[in-house]
Design a protein around this nucleic acid. Structure first.
Lengths: 116, 116, 116, 116
DNA sequence: TTTT
DNA sequence: TTTT
């Protein structure tokens, strides 16, 4: 994957325990939400928090690390690429989703850096 | 904006001339699609192209640069952050979109580097 | 500063308490070493640690945050640009140094995210 | 290599034809200077150019691409990691150098995108 | 919808 | 030493 052409990096907190799917091939897929929080002061000088939620997907070895270490609330770094895809929802409506396909995970604030 | 917490970088080609909106405030908004192309060889040794399409939004000065220089087909670099938002479509269905809010544009392969 | 043209990002541990210089202008400069640690297994399956040391320089507001929060041993993220410069050492030998000029600092593994 | 822990990205122009070394193993090493140019206006409104020179090193397949396509003056993107090392110069003085070890090269402004 |  |  080219980090020059398509690269995303996020540092934030895992929204809930990742959903793990075991494929027939034996490969794992992990899927979860990550919150990135930015803080700024508005014109009144009040501290405002802006939270952005991202959907993260990971495959194989990266999914295994997520399953083991990246539980709800954990602070992690994610690097990967932006991917979009479409599907039909249960009402037959075409939906588009954009996800970050993670190929790297970094556990933060951890003494034993059991990251990828 | 924190590039450590939420950062996207893309290099690709502009899909069509950007749509420019002039806000009442006098500020401009630019919106366009960017294609990032990756190439790989499949197991048969055939060259495969994988194109990903991204929605880019830019405000103010960055939008002005896009309007002037980033026409259809142009090769550009984009840096910014990932943002998601929801809206109701014309049938009242709630839709979610994820966009890259560009705060930096780089014109590539250009003799006169009139980039940001 | 263009993150597309010249961008560095590091996550690691502060080597020693940053050296703070107060300029006559009242501006601060912070200078410190940051260690980035990578782990891999060699051909014998032994876990090897590879530590890279980086010189970080920061000015103004970023230097103040470093002075307050980025003491020895702290895990932080740094984003900025690569800069090189030359000087003459005490023996009159011309020396070249390459530094990361940080314009962003993120404190990691901290409950109260008092980062920039 | 972890792009979260140690990542550099540059877009600029090749200073001179890369120096290629053929190792006994058959592997190639490429070494060259890359200029990144930033422009700003000073307080008098004059356009100022600030050029930063970087030393780039690449191994193996990346070195081969550089040898073929990244000649003097070419506009390229480089992604990789920051590495420092020391050596003794011809006068026995210990010297330190910081280099960008490229693991990705992108040829820009090229009709035939024969990049990595 | 781009580009190669 | 590049490029604009």
């Amino acid at each position: 994957m080219s980090t020059l052409k398509n690269h995303v990096q996020l540092i934030g907190n895992v929204g809930q325990d990742p959903q793990i799917t075991n494929l027939e091939s034996g490969k794992k897929v992990a899927r979860f939400s990550l919150a990135t929080n930015e803080f700024y002061k508005n014109e009144k000088g009040e501290k405002i928090q802006n939270t952005e939620w991202h959907t993260i997907v990971a495959w194989g070895k990266t999914a295994e690390i997520i399953e083991k270490y990246a539980g709800k609330g954990k602070e992690i770094g994610v690097a990967g690429k932006l991917k979009s895809r479409s599907y039909e929802d249960k009402d037959g409506v075409k939906r588009y989703v954009t996800e970050v396909e993670a190929n790297e995970i970094l556990l933060l604030g951890v003494k034993n850096g059991d990251s990828q």
